[in-house]
Design a protein around this nucleic acid. Structure first.
Length: 461
RNA sequence: UCCCCAGUAGCUCAGUGGUAGAGCAAUCGGCUGUUAACCGAUCGGUCGUUGGUUCGAGUCCAACCUGGGGAGCCA
């Protein structure tokens, strides 16, 4: 008999037919002559209740029938006599595939703290929360690809190893094949010409520069891949390894980019709500009772757009007691961003045109000569979910800015070439995938929206 | 990296300088339809580690380790 996923079974359920179901037991209720098994296979949030009685039960080693064991069940789908489920399986055959010694199986049929579950990341996908997280993450990734594919973007695989040591987005992990206990040296310093790439190499902090290359050849592209930051960040919204989505659009200015960001986010949110209603309802009930209503209102309203200068003026007028000063030229702090998006405006805010001194060299210089065409998309609770800009496409302006930033032009010869040959207006942004999932689910800690989080001092599993 | 908080049974927690506790889990028994099943009994501890104060430390102090919250860096 073909195995049915519990999800298909519950969708198509009507009584009477025979099915084969495999999965893991969540809990057993046994009254001696009849036992109820809650079986879950991860295809959906819901368990299927399996009723075992008579000979089928007496043939089973009931001490092995416990939370965590895996089973194969054959039986008829019948209307349930009990409350709580419409259908159940009346078992004609039950086989225990793999036992799970209840003396030491860590998961119990009760709620565990997220902190405890992080220590057993190999088992936490078997919980409701992480099953739901896995399905939502999957649906979100699919929605992202779908959105771009529908809009004519090409998916570009940018390299994970980069030899340019100054991409400007924070400290990097070194990649080396040198023997650390015996590093070859020349003149007292490590001789990197002996290393695999013949020079220093690092894990990428962004696929942007390479994405720009393809945008200026095939127009609209996006990357979606792992990204690495070696910062010693210990917060609920930072990871050392995370997934980033980076569209890069040719013939597009900052306004067009903000339009894209808004339309993109709304579509992804709507798609996930549509595809994972049960999982989203679960997060809404147990983690943040406002998450669904917040997403719905975002989908159905326009993002607020303000300039950095407007933001500074708003913050000054607010008469809020901020810990950090509000002054034109200073970067917005978390507390300022949260005030804007949570208190003052109450929905996503796109802040644009930041002072050039606090933004990266590749962002396009505005007419005023003081600000650059940068944008941050801020959302309640998470803060910055998207950071992007229109890119500087003018060769002379770009080299001036690189010099101001004290950068080595020679290192970026290929990036500068793009401005020499057929340069065009273009823009792009980076979206933190985990921050997006975090925002959608209402999960407090980013470590709980990625299967295996990497943070300082933590690379188990 | 900085500031604050926490660490007691497998899990979640109580314990206010004087005999180590509860619920759940586990184990054994009971129960013919349960819903984190229920009922009875049993088992369960280097109180994060090291040092100090004290007649006496789970409790007070110090350092370290681990975790959490916030900040910075950013997505």
């Amino acid at each position: 008999m073909r195995r049915s996923k519990i999800s298909e079974l519950l969708i198509s359920a009507d009584a009477g037919y025979e099915v084969l179901v495999c999965g893991w037991i969540r809990t057993v209720r046994n009254s001696g002559s009849v036992a109820f098994l809650q079986v879950n296979d991860g295809s959906c949030l819901a368990d299927i209740q399996v009723v075992v009685e008579g000979d089928v039960l007496s043939l089973l080693e009931t001490t092995e029938l416990c939370t965590g064991c895996s089973v194969k069940v054959e039986g008829a789908v019948v209307e349930s006599l009990g409350k709580g489920q419409k259908y159940e399986i009346k078992a004609s055959y039950v086989e225990i595939l793999g036992t799970a010694d209840s003396n030491d199986y860590p998961l119990q049929k009760k709620r565990h703290t997220l902190e405890f579950l992080r220590d057993i990341a190999h088992l936490r996908p078997r919980t409701n929360t992480f099953g739901a997280m896995s399905r939502v993450r999957n649906a979100a990734a699919f929605a992202i690809h779908t959105y771009f594919q529908k809009h004519g973007f090409q998916y570009i695989q940018t390299p994970m190893i980069t030899a340019s040591d100054a991409e400007g987005a924070g400290s990097m992990f070194r990649v080396t094949t040198l023997d650390l206990a015996n590093v070859p040296k020349k003149g007292g310093v490590p001789d990197l010409s002996e290393d695999f790439f013949g020079k220093s190499a690092y894990l990428t902090v962004s696929g942007q520069l390479e994405a720009e290359i393809f945008a200026q050849a095939v127009s609209d592209v996006y990357t979606f891949g792992p990204t690495f930051r070696a910062e010693n960040s210990n917060t609920s919204r930072h990871l050392a390894e995370f997934w980033m989505v980076e569209p890069e659009v040719a013939f597009c200015d900052l306004n067009g980019l903000a339009d894209l960001a808004e339309d993109f986010l709304k579509n992804v949110f709507a798609e996930v709500i549509d595809r994972c209603p049960d999982d989203m309802a679960f997060f809404n009930q147990w983690y943040d009772k406002t998450t669904l209503s917040t997403l719905e209102s975002i989908i159905n309203s326009d993002f607020e757009r303000i300039t950095y200068s407007d933001a500074i003026a708003m913050l000054k007028r607010s008469e809020q007691a901020f810990e950090y000063p509000v002054e034109w030229g200073l970067d917005l702090q978390s507390e300022h961003e949260r005030y804007l998006t949570e208190t003052k405006i109450g929905k996503p805010v796109v802040v644009t045109d930041y002072p050039k001194e606090i933004k990266a060299f590749y962002m396009r210089l505005n007419e005023d000569d003081k600000t650059v065409a940068a944008m941050d998309v801020l959302v309640p609770r998470i803060g910055e979910i998207i950071g992007g800009s229109q890119r500087e496409e003018r060769y002379d302006v770009l080299t001036d800015r690189m010099r101001e930033a004290g950068m080595e032009e020679a290192e970026y010869w290929w990036y500068l070439d793009l401005r020499k040959y057929g340069s065009v207006e273009h823009a792009g942004f980076g979206l933190g995938f985990e921050r997006t999932v975090q925002f959608m689910t209402g999960m407090q800690n980013i470590r709980d929206v990625i299967p295996f989080p990497r943070t300082p001092n933590n690379a188990e599993f």
